[in-house]
Every structure is written in structure tokens, then in C-alpha cells.
Amino acid sequence: MTAALWHALVGAGLFSLSLYHLIVAQDLLRRIIAVNLLGTGLFVILVALGYRGPDAPPDPVPHALVLTGIVVAVSATGLALALARRVHASGGRSEDV
């Protein structure tokens, strides 16, 4: 097994684990974190794809994609938190979402 594959598998594990929690979690904060981790799992897979061993320069394209992905994720998270606050402030419950 190569290091890249191992890390890609770690990413897959992270993705699946987060998927489970995203489905079962009732708490909004937990769901927001779960979806963040889901994204991170995906990013791990992508970066592992870019890894071409200690001697060869890594493939920069997945890195660029992940950078974009991280920024998108933080934007969505910021929006999600603001929204979650309004849900609670207007009397909504996590379970209703």
C-alpha cells in the first residue's frame, strides 16, 4: 500500500464517518461540524491524489482545488452559523430542520 492510497483511504473514512453523523445528528452545530468534516475528508482524498512521492513535485491542481474548497467551506459555515442563530432566535428547534 502506498502512502497516497493510505491517506486517500483515511479521507474516505473521514467522509463516511461524517456522513453518518450528518444524517443522525439532531444538533445543528454538530451537523455544521459534520458537514465541515465531510468536506475535509474529501479534501484529504484530493490532496492524496496530488501526492506523487517524496521526490517528485506534487500535482498542484488538487491543491488549488482544495484551497478553493476550504474558502467555500468557510463561507458556507459562516452563513450556516448565522442562519442557525436566527433559527434558534425565532423559536425554531434543531429537530425541525
Binding site: F15, L22, L28, R31, I32, V35, L38, G39, L42, I45, L46, L49, P62, G69, A76, L79, A80, L83, A84, R86, V87, S90, G91, G92, D96, V97
Partner: peptide, 26 residues
């Protein structure tokens, strides 16, 4: 209030859906 709840769900769904799509791209 209903719109906030709906939007929250929409956001989570959209987020999950986009990531599923991106997984395919990866």
C-alpha cells in the same frame, strides 16, 4: 421563522449535495 428553518435545511442539503458532486469530480 419557517423560512429560517427551511433555509437552514436547504443550506445543509445544498452543502451535502455539492460535496457529493465534488467527490465525483475528485
Amino acid at each position: 421563522p419557517e423560512a429560517f428553518t427551511a433555509a437552514m435545511r436547504y443550506l445543509l442539503v445544498g452543502f451535502l449535495a455539492s460535496l457529493l458532486y465534488l467527490l465525483g469530480v475528485a
